[in-house]
């Protein structure tokens, strides 16, 4: 940059004509360059660095030792890793209920009644609240001795199961807490989607005798494809990076039964000072996400091709 003004005049002319010839290629590159530079520095470089770390043993400070594939060998023999992976699968599958619930809440709220805006914003409220707060509130709900659910169930003679201290229930208790804000998010996506549904098409379908379920599945849902796609994207991302709720509600416990990969990675890096091992977990998580990212990119690619 600094030596640009020093360039001889002919050179400049040459570059100008070069630039003119390849304008269609160079202009987009020039526009992409700043974003690409930032992205490389803050995303790609850390990814490479983290993958590199996964082949070392490192405390976070002090010397690093190269251990080859040792971390991965340990990882695949680590029962906690498999529990966490399984829990991630539970998260992924059960979290997909959020778009479904969200759609029905949106259909229900998509009416023109007095005060519906207030109701809509109340339904959206859990998404505005921080995940940490959601986690704490649900942990209080679940408290088997002093919690709200226990207090309500006790007079009826029902015993509150100790959700967060039970190794089989803990994960599902956390997922339920996670579904609450996620449903709200999907709902808002569908509400905006419903706004753009063409009423003429629906009217036409009605004239042709389509009703209820059939109308929803064959006429409305196809028009909501864009909203469904986004809802799936944010939900799957949300499920894979599930961390804050686990950290707040159980810290992965009791004895790792509700751990997920993201939290186990954090736990290893921060509390056990095993940066290399944590990086190998990060790498595995990254690879899992890649499967889904590739699917996402391919879809985008195909869509773009379609529009051209």
């Amino acid at each position: 940059m600094a030596d640009l003004p020093m360039m001889p005049a002919q050179r400049t002319r040459m570059t100008t004509s070069f630039f003119r010839k390849h304008k269609l290629l160079l202009m987009p590159l020039a526009f992409i360059a700043p974003a690409f530079a930032m992205f490389s520095l803050f995303v790609i470089y850390p990814i490479i660095q983290s993958i590199g770390l996964s082949f070392t043993q490192w405390q976070g400070i002090g010397p690093k030792t190269w251990v080859g594939l040792n971390n991965y060998r340990m990882l695949f023999n680590d029962a906690v890793f498999w529990t966490s992976l399984m829990n991630n699968v539970y998260w992924l599958v059960l979290f997909l209920l959020a778009p479904v619930f969200g759609l029905f809440v949106a259909l229900f709220l998509n009416q023109t009644v007095f005060g519906i805006r207030l109701v809509k914003s109340l339904f959206f409220f859990p998404f505005v609240v921080s995940q940490i707060v959601v986690g704490i509130i649900f942990a209080w709900f679940y408290d088997p001795a002093f919690g709200l659910l226990a207090t309500v169930l006790e007079p009826i003679g029902l015993d509150m199961p100790p959700i967060l201290s039970d190794e089989t229930l803990a994960t599902f208790g956390i997922i339920l807490a996670g579904l609450w804000p996620q449903t709200a998010y999907c709902m808002i996506l569908y509400l905006t989607g419903l706004n753009s549904v063409n009423p003429e098409v629906i009217e036409a379908a009605r004239l042709d005798g389509a009703k209820g379920w059939q109308l929803l599945v064959k006429i409305v849902l196809p028009q909501l494809r864009a909203a469904t796609f986004i809802a799936l994207v944010v939900t799957i991302i949300g499920a894979l990076r599930s961390f804050d709720l686990v950290a707040v509600m159980t810290e992965g416990g009791p004895y790792n039964s509700s751990n997920v990969l993201a939290y186990y990675m954090y736990d290893n890096a921060i509390f056990r000072y095993r940066m290399g091992y944590a990086s190998s977990i990060a790498t595995v998580l990254f690879l899992i996400m890649n499967v889904y990212i590739v699917w996402f990119l391919m879809r985008l690619w195909n869509n773009e091709k379609g529009t051209r």
């Binding site: 942990a139 408290d143 967060l164 201290s165 159980t250």
Partner: peptide, 9 residues
């Protein structure tokens, strides 16, 4: 039964 129930919570 020395300990309270559900202490991991």
């Amino acid at each position: 039964d020395f300990y309270i129930e559900n202490h991991p919570a």
